[in-house]
Protein backbone atom coordinates (compact mmCIF):
# COMPACT_ATOMS: atom_id res chain seq x y z
CA UNK A 1 0.00 0.00 0.00
CA UNK A 2 2.86 2.35 0.80
CA UNK A 3 4.37 1.68 -2.58
CA UNK A 4 1.16 2.36 -4.41
CA UNK A 5 0.39 5.43 -2.36
CA UNK A 6 3.67 6.98 -3.40
CA UNK A 7 2.97 6.29 -7.01
CA UNK A 8 -0.51 7.62 -6.83
CA UNK A 9 0.46 10.75 -5.02
CA UNK A 10 2.43 11.62 -8.09
CA UNK A 11 -0.56 10.67 -10.18
CA UNK A 12 -2.60 13.58 -8.86
CA UNK A 13 -0.67 15.66 -11.33
CA UNK A 14 -1.17 13.31 -14.24
CA UNK A 15 -2.92 14.17 -17.40
CA UNK A 16 -6.39 13.34 -18.51
CA UNK A 17 -7.54 10.04 -19.80
CA UNK A 18 -4.22 8.26 -19.71
CA UNK A 19 -4.45 5.18 -17.52
CA UNK A 20 -2.63 5.69 -14.26
CA UNK A 21 -0.05 3.11 -13.36
CA UNK A 22 -0.27 1.71 -9.86
CA UNK A 23 1.47 -1.02 -8.00
CA UNK A 24 0.40 -4.52 -9.02
CA UNK A 25 1.57 -5.97 -5.73
CA UNK A 26 0.46 -4.37 -2.49
CA UNK A 27 1.43 -4.86 1.12
CA UNK A 28 -0.71 -3.85 4.06
CA UNK A 29 -1.32 -4.90 7.59
CA UNK A 30 -2.66 -4.18 11.01
CA UNK A 31 -1.98 -5.12 14.59
CA UNK A 32 -3.01 -4.59 18.18
CA UNK A 33 -1.26 -4.77 21.54
CA UNK A 34 -3.37 -5.18 24.68
CA UNK A 35 -3.08 -4.92 28.42
CA UNK A 36 -5.85 -6.54 30.44
CA UNK A 37 -6.29 -5.87 34.15
CA UNK A 38 -9.31 -7.80 35.41
CA UNK A 39 -10.41 -8.97 38.83
CA UNK A 40 -12.26 -12.27 38.65
CA UNK A 41 -14.61 -13.65 41.29
CA UNK A 42 -15.47 -17.36 41.27
CA UNK A 43 -18.85 -18.69 42.43
CA UNK A 44 -17.13 -19.73 45.64
CA UNK A 45 -16.23 -16.11 46.27
CA UNK A 46 -12.55 -16.68 45.65
CA UNK A 47 -10.91 -13.78 43.85
CA UNK A 48 -8.08 -13.81 41.36
CA UNK A 49 -6.45 -11.29 39.09
CA UNK A 50 -5.95 -11.50 35.37
CA UNK A 51 -3.21 -9.10 34.47
CA UNK A 52 -1.81 -9.74 31.04
CA UNK A 53 0.14 -8.11 28.24
CA UNK A 54 -0.44 -9.54 24.82
CA UNK A 55 0.47 -8.57 21.28
CA UNK A 56 -2.86 -10.02 20.29
CA UNK A 57 -2.66 -9.75 16.53
CA UNK A 58 0.11 -9.04 14.06
CA UNK A 59 -1.22 -9.22 10.53
CA UNK A 60 0.38 -8.82 7.12
CA UNK A 61 -1.68 -8.56 3.96
CA UNK A 62 -0.36 -9.24 0.49
CA UNK A 63 -2.28 -8.63 -2.69
CA UNK A 64 -1.49 -8.86 -6.37
CA UNK A 65 -3.35 -7.77 -9.47
CA UNK A 66 -2.74 -10.21 -12.32
CA UNK A 67 -4.66 -7.87 -14.60
CA UNK A 68 -7.51 -5.41 -14.17
CA UNK A 69 -10.09 -8.07 -13.38
CA UNK A 70 -8.20 -10.94 -11.73
CA UNK A 71 -6.52 -10.43 -8.40
CA UNK A 72 -5.14 -12.25 -5.39
CA UNK A 73 -5.47 -11.21 -1.77
CA UNK A 74 -4.12 -12.77 1.38
CA UNK A 75 -3.90 -12.17 5.11
CA UNK A 76 -1.44 -13.93 7.36
CA UNK A 77 -1.84 -13.49 11.10
CA UNK A 78 0.38 -14.19 14.07
CA UNK A 79 -1.84 -14.33 17.14
CA UNK A 80 -0.44 -13.88 20.64
CA UNK A 81 3.10 -13.13 19.48
CA UNK A 82 4.83 -16.46 20.05
CA UNK A 83 4.29 -19.94 18.68
CA UNK A 84 6.01 -22.99 20.06
CA UNK A 85 5.22 -26.65 19.66
CA UNK A 86 4.51 -28.34 22.93
CA UNK A 87 1.81 -29.41 25.30
CA UNK A 88 0.59 -28.38 28.73
CA UNK A 89 2.82 -25.90 30.46
CA UNK A 90 5.27 -26.11 27.58
CA UNK A 91 2.76 -24.77 25.07
CA UNK A 92 2.07 -21.19 24.06
CA UNK A 93 -1.24 -19.60 23.06
CA UNK A 94 0.21 -18.37 19.79
CA UNK A 95 -1.10 -19.36 16.38
CA UNK A 96 -0.03 -18.64 12.83
CA UNK A 97 -3.10 -18.42 10.65
CA UNK A 98 -3.82 -17.97 6.98
CA UNK A 99 -7.10 -16.10 7.30
CA UNK A 100 -7.50 -15.09 3.69
CA UNK A 101 -5.93 -16.35 0.48
CA UNK A 102 -8.14 -16.19 -2.56
CA UNK A 103 -8.23 -15.42 -6.24
CA UNK A 104 -11.00 -13.04 -7.21
CA UNK A 105 -12.32 -12.51 -10.72
CA UNK A 106 -14.69 -9.74 -11.74
CA UNK A 107 -17.64 -10.97 -13.74
CA UNK A 108 -18.99 -7.56 -14.64
CA UNK A 109 -19.05 -4.07 -13.12
CA UNK A 110 -21.20 -5.22 -10.23
CA UNK A 111 -20.31 -8.82 -9.48
CA UNK A 112 -17.34 -11.03 -8.80
CA UNK A 113 -16.37 -14.56 -7.99
CA UNK A 114 -13.70 -15.71 -5.59
CA UNK A 115 -12.15 -19.08 -4.77
CA UNK A 116 -9.83 -19.99 -1.94
CA UNK A 117 -9.82 -19.08 1.72
CA UNK A 118 -12.07 -16.12 2.57
CA UNK A 119 -13.85 -14.51 5.49
CA UNK A 120 -17.44 -15.60 5.95
CA UNK A 121 -19.84 -12.75 5.13
CA UNK A 122 -21.53 -12.47 8.51
CA UNK A 123 -21.73 -9.98 11.35
CA UNK A 124 -20.25 -6.53 11.71
CA UNK A 125 -16.64 -7.36 12.53
CA UNK A 126 -15.84 -10.56 10.71
CA UNK A 127 -14.79 -8.88 7.48
CA UNK A 128 -13.79 -5.46 8.78
CA UNK A 129 -11.81 -5.73 11.98
CA UNK A 130 -8.81 -3.43 11.72
CA UNK A 131 -8.36 -1.92 15.22
CA UNK A 132 -8.92 1.74 14.22
CA UNK A 133 -12.29 0.73 12.78
CA UNK A 134 -14.01 -0.38 16.00
CA UNK A 135 -14.42 0.64 19.62
CA UNK A 136 -13.19 -1.45 22.52
CA UNK A 137 -9.81 -3.01 23.21
CA UNK A 138 -11.14 -6.53 22.68
CA UNK A 139 -13.64 -7.42 19.98
CA UNK A 140 -17.21 -7.91 21.12
CA UNK A 141 -17.92 -11.32 22.62
CA UNK A 142 -21.18 -12.03 20.81
CA UNK A 143 -19.42 -12.15 17.48
CA UNK A 144 -16.51 -14.05 19.01
CA UNK A 145 -18.51 -16.66 20.88
CA UNK A 146 -21.62 -17.08 18.75
CA UNK A 147 -20.79 -16.35 15.11
CA UNK A 148 -17.75 -17.16 15.72
CA UNK A 149 -15.48 -14.34 14.48
CA UNK A 150 -12.92 -14.23 13.12
CA UNK A 151 -14.25 -16.98 10.88
CA UNK A 152 -12.82 -18.05 7.58
CA UNK A 153 -13.43 -21.10 5.42
CA UNK A 154 -12.30 -22.45 2.08
CA UNK A 155 -14.58 -22.59 -0.94
CA UNK A 156 -16.17 -20.35 -3.55
CA UNK A 157 -18.19 -17.18 -3.22
CA UNK A 158 -20.21 -15.08 -5.65
CA UNK A 159 -20.76 -11.46 -4.70
CA UNK A 160 -22.72 -8.73 -6.38
CA UNK A 161 -24.44 -5.43 -5.81
CA UNK A 162 -27.23 -3.37 -7.31
CA UNK A 163 -27.33 0.33 -8.03
CA UNK A 164 -29.78 0.94 -5.18
CA UNK A 165 -27.29 -0.09 -2.49
CA UNK A 166 -28.34 -3.72 -2.11
CA UNK A 167 -25.53 -6.25 -2.18
CA UNK A 168 -25.49 -10.00 -1.84
CA UNK A 169 -23.07 -12.86 -1.30
CA UNK A 170 -23.56 -16.57 -1.92
CA UNK A 171 -20.89 -18.95 -0.69
CA UNK A 172 -20.27 -22.67 -0.74
CA UNK A 173 -17.50 -23.60 1.64
CA UNK A 174 -15.99 -25.99 4.15
CA UNK A 175 -18.13 -26.75 7.18
CA UNK A 176 -17.61 -26.78 10.91
CA UNK A 177 -16.39 -29.88 12.73
CA UNK A 178 -18.31 -29.56 15.98
CA UNK A 179 -20.34 -32.62 16.86
CA UNK A 180 -19.90 -31.64 20.53
CA UNK A 181 -21.80 -28.42 19.84
CA UNK A 182 -18.79 -26.20 20.48
CA UNK A 183 -19.15 -23.93 17.46
CA UNK A 184 -16.05 -21.81 17.98
CA UNK A 185 -13.81 -24.81 18.48
CA UNK A 186 -15.37 -26.36 15.38
CA UNK A 187 -13.54 -24.03 13.02
CA UNK A 188 -11.06 -26.16 11.11
CA UNK A 189 -9.34 -23.06 9.75
CA UNK A 190 -8.91 -24.79 6.40
CA UNK A 191 -6.08 -26.88 7.81
CA UNK A 192 -6.72 -30.23 6.14
CA UNK A 193 -10.34 -29.50 6.99
CA UNK A 194 -12.78 -32.37 6.70
CA UNK A 195 -14.75 -32.10 3.47
CA UNK A 196 -17.45 -34.68 4.12
CA UNK A 197 -20.07 -32.04 4.84
CA UNK A 198 -20.11 -28.56 3.36
CA UNK A 199 -21.85 -25.36 4.39
CA UNK A 200 -23.81 -22.71 2.48
CA UNK A 201 -23.91 -19.03 3.33
CA UNK A 202 -26.09 -16.25 1.92
CA UNK A 203 -26.04 -12.61 2.92
CA UNK A 204 -28.11 -9.65 1.82
CA UNK A 205 -26.98 -6.17 2.80
CA UNK A 206 -28.43 -2.72 2.25
CA UNK A 207 -26.20 0.35 2.39
CA UNK A 208 -28.19 2.59 0.06
CA UNK A 209 -28.52 5.40 2.60
CA UNK A 210 -25.31 6.99 3.77
CA UNK A 211 -24.56 5.96 7.31
CA UNK A 212 -27.02 3.07 7.31
CA UNK A 213 -26.25 -0.64 7.10
CA UNK A 214 -28.83 -3.38 7.39
CA UNK A 215 -27.74 -6.94 6.79
CA UNK A 216 -28.90 -10.50 7.29
CA UNK A 217 -26.99 -13.74 6.89
CA UNK A 218 -28.23 -17.32 6.78
CA UNK A 219 -25.91 -20.28 6.89
CA UNK A 220 -26.72 -23.96 6.61
CA UNK A 221 -24.32 -26.62 7.82
CA UNK A 222 -24.82 -30.08 6.35
CA UNK A 223 -23.34 -32.07 9.20
CA UNK A 224 -21.39 -30.78 12.20
CA UNK A 225 -19.98 -34.26 12.75
CA UNK A 226 -18.40 -34.33 9.29
CA UNK A 227 -19.80 -37.79 8.71
CA UNK A 228 -18.63 -39.33 11.95
CA UNK A 229 -22.03 -39.47 13.66
CA UNK A 230 -24.59 -42.11 12.81
CA UNK A 231 -26.99 -39.39 11.75
CA UNK A 232 -26.00 -36.04 10.31
CA UNK A 233 -26.11 -33.11 12.74
CA UNK A 234 -27.32 -30.20 10.68
CA UNK A 235 -27.18 -26.65 11.93
CA UNK A 236 -28.49 -23.25 10.90
CA UNK A 237 -27.07 -19.83 11.70
CA UNK A 238 -29.07 -16.68 11.30
CA UNK A 239 -27.57 -13.28 11.94
CA UNK A 240 -28.85 -9.79 11.37
CA UNK A 241 -27.64 -6.37 12.31
CA UNK A 242 -28.36 -2.73 11.77
CA UNK A 243 -25.95 0.16 12.16
CA UNK A 244 -26.63 3.84 11.64
CA UNK A 245 -24.16 6.68 11.84
CA UNK A 246 -25.01 10.32 11.42
CA UNK A 247 -22.56 13.05 12.23
CA UNK A 248 -20.70 12.10 15.41
CA UNK A 249 -23.33 9.58 16.53
CA UNK A 250 -23.38 5.89 15.74
CA UNK A 251 -25.64 3.15 17.02
CA UNK A 252 -25.66 -0.52 16.14
CA UNK A 253 -27.45 -3.68 17.17
CA UNK A 254 -26.89 -7.29 16.25
CA UNK A 255 -28.56 -10.64 16.86
CA UNK A 256 -27.15 -14.07 16.03
CA UNK A 257 -28.51 -17.54 16.67
CA UNK A 258 -27.47 -21.11 15.99
CA UNK A 259 -29.97 -23.95 15.88
CA UNK A 260 -28.40 -27.39 16.04
CA UNK A 261 -30.32 -30.49 15.00
CA UNK A 262 -30.85 -33.60 17.06
CA UNK A 263 -27.59 -35.36 17.70
CA UNK A 264 -25.91 -32.31 19.19
CA UNK A 265 -25.75 -32.13 22.98
CA UNK A 266 -29.23 -31.24 24.26
CA UNK A 267 -27.98 -28.26 26.21
CA UNK A 268 -26.35 -26.70 23.16
CA UNK A 269 -29.10 -27.04 20.57
CA UNK A 270 -29.77 -23.32 20.64
CA UNK A 271 -27.00 -20.76 21.02
CA UNK A 272 -27.70 -17.08 20.65
CA UNK A 273 -26.53 -13.61 21.50
CA UNK A 274 -27.26 -9.98 20.92
CA UNK A 275 -25.51 -6.68 21.42
CA UNK A 276 -26.22 -3.00 21.24
CA UNK A 277 -23.58 -0.29 21.00
CA UNK A 278 -23.68 3.47 20.96
CA UNK A 279 -20.79 5.82 20.29
CA UNK A 280 -20.15 9.52 19.98
CA UNK A 281 -17.13 11.22 18.42
CA UNK A 282 -16.45 14.19 20.67
CA UNK A 283 -13.81 15.41 18.23
CA UNK A 284 -12.35 14.01 15.04
CA UNK A 285 -9.69 12.27 17.11
CA UNK A 286 -11.60 11.24 20.22
CA UNK A 287 -14.71 9.13 20.63
CA UNK A 288 -16.54 7.43 23.50
CA UNK A 289 -18.73 4.32 23.46
CA UNK A 290 -20.79 1.96 25.53
CA UNK A 291 -21.72 -1.61 24.59
CA UNK A 292 -23.99 -4.22 26.12
CA UNK A 293 -23.64 -7.87 25.08
CA UNK A 294 -25.75 -10.84 26.17
CA UNK A 295 -25.27 -14.36 24.96
CA UNK A 296 -25.82 -18.00 25.81
CA UNK A 297 -24.03 -21.06 24.50
CA UNK A 298 -25.27 -23.59 27.04
CA UNK A 299 -28.87 -23.73 28.24
CA UNK A 300 -29.39 -21.86 31.51
CA UNK A 301 -25.90 -20.38 31.40
CA UNK A 302 -26.47 -16.82 30.31
CA UNK A 303 -23.56 -14.45 30.01
CA UNK A 304 -23.45 -10.70 29.78
CA UNK A 305 -20.85 -8.01 29.41
CA UNK A 306 -21.00 -4.24 29.67
CA UNK A 307 -18.12 -2.22 28.27
CA UNK A 308 -17.59 1.54 28.16
CA UNK A 309 -14.54 3.51 27.16
CA UNK A 310 -12.89 5.65 24.54
CA UNK A 311 -10.76 5.60 21.40
CA UNK A 312 -8.13 8.21 20.63
CA UNK A 313 -6.81 8.44 17.07
CA UNK A 314 -3.59 10.52 16.92
CA UNK A 315 -3.53 9.56 13.23
CA UNK A 316 -6.41 8.19 11.22
CA UNK A 317 -4.65 4.80 11.03
CA UNK A 318 -3.46 4.62 14.64
CA UNK A 319 -5.64 4.24 17.70
CA UNK A 320 -5.18 4.14 21.47
CA UNK A 321 -8.00 2.55 23.44
CA UNK A 322 -9.22 2.33 26.99
CA UNK A 323 -12.28 0.62 28.34
CA UNK A 324 -13.79 -0.58 31.58
CA UNK A 325 -15.77 -3.80 31.57
CA UNK A 326 -17.95 -5.91 33.81
CA UNK A 327 -18.76 -9.47 32.82
CA UNK A 328 -21.19 -11.85 34.47
CA UNK A 329 -21.48 -15.58 33.74
CA UNK A 330 -24.34 -17.54 35.31
CA UNK A 331 -22.97 -20.39 37.40
CA UNK A 332 -19.44 -19.25 36.77
CA UNK A 333 -17.08 -16.36 37.32
CA UNK A 334 -17.70 -12.66 37.32
CA UNK A 335 -15.07 -10.19 36.33
CA UNK A 336 -14.49 -6.48 36.18
CA UNK A 337 -11.57 -4.30 35.32
CA UNK A 338 -10.00 -2.29 32.56
CA UNK A 339 -8.22 -2.84 29.27
CA UNK A 340 -5.69 -0.76 27.38
CA UNK A 341 -4.76 -1.14 23.76
CA UNK A 342 -2.93 0.34 20.83
CA UNK A 343 -3.70 -0.59 17.26
CA UNK A 344 -2.70 0.40 13.75
CA UNK A 345 -3.34 -0.31 10.12
CA UNK A 346 -1.47 0.52 6.94
Amino acid sequence: MLLSRTLISAAITTTLAAPVAYAETTVGGYGEFHYNNLEQTATSGAKSDKKMLDFHRFVLEFGHDFNDHIRFFSEVELEHAFVKNGSGADSTPGEVELEQAYVEMDIDDNSSFKAGVFLIPVGMLNETHEPPAFYGVERNLVEKEIIPATWWEGGVMYSGHLDNGVSYDLALHSGLNASDGNIRDGRSKVAEAAGEALAYTARVKYTGISGLEIAATVQLQDDLSQGTAAEAIGATLIESHVAYATGPFKASAMYAQWDLDAGAPDNKEEQSGMLVEASYKVTEKFGVFVRQSDWSIVVNEDKSQTVAGFNYWPHEDVVFKFDYQTEDHDNATESKGFNLGVGYQF
Partner: peptide, 14 residues
Protein backbone atom coordinates in the same frame (compact mmCIF):
# COMPACT_ATOMS: atom_id res chain seq x y z
CA UNK B 1 -21.38 -24.22 -9.75
CA UNK B 2 -17.65 -24.01 -10.35
CA UNK B 3 -18.02 -24.47 -14.08
CA UNK B 4 -20.81 -21.92 -14.36
CA UNK B 5 -18.84 -19.28 -12.51
CA UNK B 6 -15.68 -20.00 -14.43
CA UNK B 7 -17.61 -19.61 -17.67
CA UNK B 8 -18.89 -16.24 -16.54
CA UNK B 9 -15.50 -14.94 -15.54
CA UNK B 10 -13.93 -14.67 -19.03
CA UNK B 11 -16.65 -12.18 -19.87
CA UNK B 12 -15.11 -9.88 -17.33
CA UNK B 13 -14.26 -6.46 -18.59
CA UNK B 14 -11.70 -3.92 -17.66
Amino acid sequence: IFICLMCLAPAARA
